[in-house]
Amino acid sequence: MDIAPYLLLATLEGLVQASVLTLTALGLSVVFGTMRVVNVAHGEFFMLGAVGAWVCAMLMPGPPWLGFVTALIVAPAIVGLLAAAADWAILKRIDYDPEATIISTIGLMYIIQQVVLMTFGPNAQAVDAPFYYTIRFPWFGYSSYKLFIVVAAIVLVFALWRLMKGSRVGLLMRATQYDKDTAQNFGIPVDRVYSGVFAVGAMMAAIAGVLVVPNQQAHYLMGHDPLLLSFVVVIVGGLGSIPGTIAAAVLIGLSDGLLSVFFTPTLAKIASTLLVALVLVFKPEGLFGKATR
């Protein structure tokens, strides 16, 4: 293929990748920003969203879009509840100790993975896209649904932005993030804010999972790559910084799309993981972040 269509395809793929990544990584970032903990089970919430979409598609009669819309509402809701429960049952009890949180969310990751394996089996499950139309460029065809993912991601990110900046909920979150103890003294229910934030973070991942599943199949091990890439994005973008996260997601999604067209995907992954490690070692505030307290 010539270089121009090659680049066009790589850019399109990169944009789709960046959109999914933005949603997933924002979830991780919001949680870290407010609660200062790293949730290793984040990729599993993504996977649960995808599996949820499949279950909805199975159970809902009628056209595929009906199941899809249902999934878009039901799957994040269930995942959110689950996350809130995990927060109450585990994280609160270890007082959000950063290291203990990592270990116990690793445990949570294994549990979710294996429960899904035992309940839904090891097969990858396909879900029909809500609409099916291929855009034909002169050189290749491209799924219109993939472009819908990009639009959906932009809308959702905008909605989250409004929530954080313009509403009381966002204010509570920011207050808690700024100084937990003072917030507590001012009567902010820090516990509930934490549960809520953890749930919202998980829901973001679940929505990304629902969006992605008509493209990729739902599979109990599918959470691994999104987790890793979200780590990359959140760290490069600066831990807890939302604009930084978005910028990094777009940058990394696009460059991953481009890189893996020209190099092998494994090499691209090696480069990005090393990048994260080196950013943390030499510029711990992230490439876009300002120095944190």
Partner: peptide
């Protein structure tokens, strides 16, 4: 060559010569 754990494939296809 595509890794067997891969879940997204479009980016490999431009390598197919005309």
């Amino acid at each position: 060559a595509i890794p067997p754990t891969e879940t997204s494939f479009t980016r490999y296809f431009p390598k197919i010569p005309f």
